[in-house]
């Protein structure tokens, strides 16, 4: 019994010591982890614009710090002058963007999969980021009065486009700060034919002045395909026409010539009340002056 109590006591002490030291040990590990982190992402927008986004940072004490003004050279497949994509310098956020130049078209078309190599000076800092060329298509279809968004994903296989199954993507409506899912799920996965069909449930969404919504399909950070985005306009929304009389209304946000009547009444009633009293007092003062003369 006595021995058990002693063991419990020592165990508690050990737990206490570990809990005090643990954060320091973790911090010590973090502090030594000051090596730069380089992230490279490939983007394909509407199957026509391809670019790379490079992000440079360091992790210190659990905090990611952006590395600004650092130059990198980026190559396609191998480090040679013929495969040179661009030399970039990171901005305040540690980011740099570059487009794949037209002179690399022949190399780009030759292979289905490409490797991107990043050099910092003479040092090769990234050589394992590769993507497989792909094509994302978006269309609309109305079946039995149900609106559907249909998305197809193909990947390049030695010059041929074949269906890409099991690819996760977001399908929905483009809004100001993100994508509003077109159906009930947050994300969708392509079937064996590379197809995703999303029944459109977001009815009466405010669109542009003609009622157009921008439908969007987005593959995000896919290990094989990178980032692919495709958009299509569809007149499935409700037209939102800014009222022509919006700024001509007598409201608090209107111009100075359109002050609300209640405000005019209140303000002028107070001003007239106070200043008419002041004028009365001035007249009284004049009367006092006249009495003294």
């Amino acid at each position: 019994m006595k021995k058990a109590k002693k063991t419990i006591r020592y165990s508690l002490l050990l737990v206490l010591v570990i809990s005090i030291l643990m954060p320091n040990i973790v911090d010590a590990q973090d502090a030594s982890d000051g090596t730069p982190i380089l992230k490279l992402q490939y983007f394909n927008i509407n199957n026509s614009v391809q670019y790379l986004l490079l992000e440079s940072s360091t992790k210190k004490n659990k905090v990611f710090l952006a590395q600004k003004n650092i130059s990198y050279k980026v190559y396609l497949d191998s480090v040679s002058s013929g495969n040179f994509i661009s030399e970039v310098k990171t901005n305040e956020s540690g980011k740099a963007k570059m487009f794949i130049p037209p002179n690399l078209k022949s190399i780009w078309d030759k292979s289905s999969t490409h490797l991107f190599i990043v050099m910092k000076g003479d040092e090769q800092v990234s050589s394992d980021y590769s993507i497989t060329k792909a094509r994302l298509e978006i269309d609309t279809a109305t079946i039995d009065d149900i609106k559907n968004i249909s998305v197809k994903i193909f990947k390049d296989d030695n010059g041929k486009l074949i269906a890409a199954p099991d690819i996760e993507m977001k399908v929905g409506i483009k809004r100001l700060v993100g994508i509003l899912s077109g159906g009930d799920e947050e994300t969708y996965t392509s079937d064996s034919t590379g197809l995703v069909t999303v029944p459109f449930t977001k009815i009466n969404m405010p669109g542009d002045s003609l009622g157009n919504l921008i439908l969007i399909a987005k593959i995000e950070d896919n290990e094989i395909l990178g980032n692919i985005i495709v958009e299509k306009k569809a007149s499935w929304g409700v037209p939102t026409v800014a009222g022509e009389d919006f700024f001509s209304k007598r409201e608090l946000w209107s111009t100075r010539f359109r002050s609300p009547y209640w405000l005019l009444f209140m303000a002028y009633a107070i001003i007239i009340g106070v200043y008419s009293t002041l004028i009365y007092l001035i007249l009284q003062l004049i009367k006092t002056i006249k009495i003294g003369k």
């Binding site: 009293t277 009365y280 007092l281 009284q284 003062l285 009367k287 006092t288 002056i289 009495i291 003294g292 003369k293």
Partner: peptide
């Protein structure tokens, strides 16, 4: 102009109160 006239005091007091 202040002569200390009764009326002056009356008007002045009234004005101060207002």
């Amino acid at each position: 102009f202040w002569k200390g006239h009764k009326d002056q005091f009356r008007i002045n007091d009234k004005s101060i109160n207002i």
